[in-house]
Computed example of a mutant assay.
Amino acid sequence: MIEKELRFLATPEKGEVSALLIRPDNATHLLVLGHGASTNMRHPTLRSIAEQLAEVGIATFRYNFPYSEHGKGRDGQAVCTQTIRSAIEAAQEAVPNLPLLAGGHSFSGRMTSTAASESPLEGVAGLVFFSFPLHLAGKPDTKRADHLADVSVPMLFLSGTRDELAGMNLLKPVVKKLGATLHELDTADHGYKVLKKTRTGNEDVFVEMARVVRDWSASLTS
């Protein structure tokens, strides 16, 4: 297992940001993994995702956006999408011999798909969305999904059945229309808290997500 802290140039204007690489010895893919809107790459949720992915042979390259690196107000969309492209390039340089995936939890997943809809992400074989934020809480809508039709690579959505930012009645038709893959996380909310008493099965939700990502990513390169 290789665990390494790195830095890369996010944009010329915003400067460098931090990254964390976890590469298990048996890695089959490398996932460029972004964080939620109000967190950073060291948030416990993102760390749990990365650690469980490592257990199943998926390496991860976590990174900060400039605003989360410096503790300032959120960057605009152009800065975020450029940071994602820069992170993908830095990940390829750090681990040049693994098939690439990109995505993230909530906000960063949406920014990754936005970047991919504008022009293909170099070398990326598929996008993985951990709790794609389809709409604001209490304001069901699907406008945030409009750009997904312009994404040219396979997409995997991992979404909780209690996610307040992605009503399953709205998300399911969107994913079906896209021809993408949806995995429902029983009783999980946007941050993966589950209702243990009513949840079907006893598999840990992070273990479940890692298993699904592993199987899905294997299907891309088989």
Results as ranks from 00 to 15, higher is better:
residue 189 D to V: 14
residue 200 T to R: 04
residue 143 K to S: 14
residue 217 S to N: 10
residue 109 G to V: 03
residue 8 F to K: 08
residue 208 E to W: 00
residue 37 A to R: 09
residue 146 D to P: 06
residue 97 N to G: 05
residue 77 Q to A: 13
residue 3 E to H: 06
residue 169 N to K: 03
residue 29 H to Y: 09
residue 157 F to V: 06
residue 219 S to L: 10
residue 182 L to E: 04
residue 95 V to W: 10
residue 41 M to I: 06
residue 193 K to L: 15
residue 161 T to D: 08
residue 158 L to E: 04
residue 141 D to N: 13
residue 191 G to F: 06
residue 88 I to E: 08
residue 72 K to E: 15
residue 179 G to S: 07
residue 163 D to G: 13
residue 138 G to W: 00
residue 107 F to C: 15
residue 186 D to Q: 03
residue 45 T to K: 12
residue 116 A to D: 06
residue 19 A to D: 02
residue 62 R to C: 11
residue 192 Y to K: 12
residue 134 L to Y: 01
residue 53 L to K: 02
residue 102 A to T: 09
residue 186 D to T: 03
residue 6 L to M: 10
residue 194 V to H: 03
residue 128 V to K: 02
residue 51 E to P: 09
residue 81 T to S: 06
residue 4 K to G: 05
residue 5 E to Y: 02
residue 40 N to M: 06
residue 220 L to W: 02
residue 213 V to C: 07
residue 115 A to L: 03
residue 81 T to F: 00
residue 25 D to T: 10
residue 79 V to Y: 00
residue 12 P to T: 14
residue 147 H to S: 12
residue 99 P to I: 11
residue 39 T to C: 11
residue 149 A to Q: 04
residue 192 Y to N: 14
residue 128 V to T: 09
residue 158 L to R: 00
residue 32 V to F: 06
residue 31 L to G: 08
residue 1 M to D: 02
residue 58 I to N: 05
residue 215 D to S: 09
residue 59 A to C: 08
residue 130 F to S: 13
residue 156 L to E: 05
residue 83 T to A: 05
residue 35 H to S: 07
residue 32 V to Q: 04
residue 36 G to L: 02
residue 139 K to N: 15
residue 82 Q to V: 03
residue 161 T to N: 09
residue 187 T to G: 12
residue 17 V to L: 05
residue 52 Q to R: 10
residue 48 S to E: 14
residue 87 A to L: 03
residue 116 A to C: 06
residue 59 A to L: 11
residue 62 R to H: 06
residue 59 A to P: 07
residue 55 E to D: 13
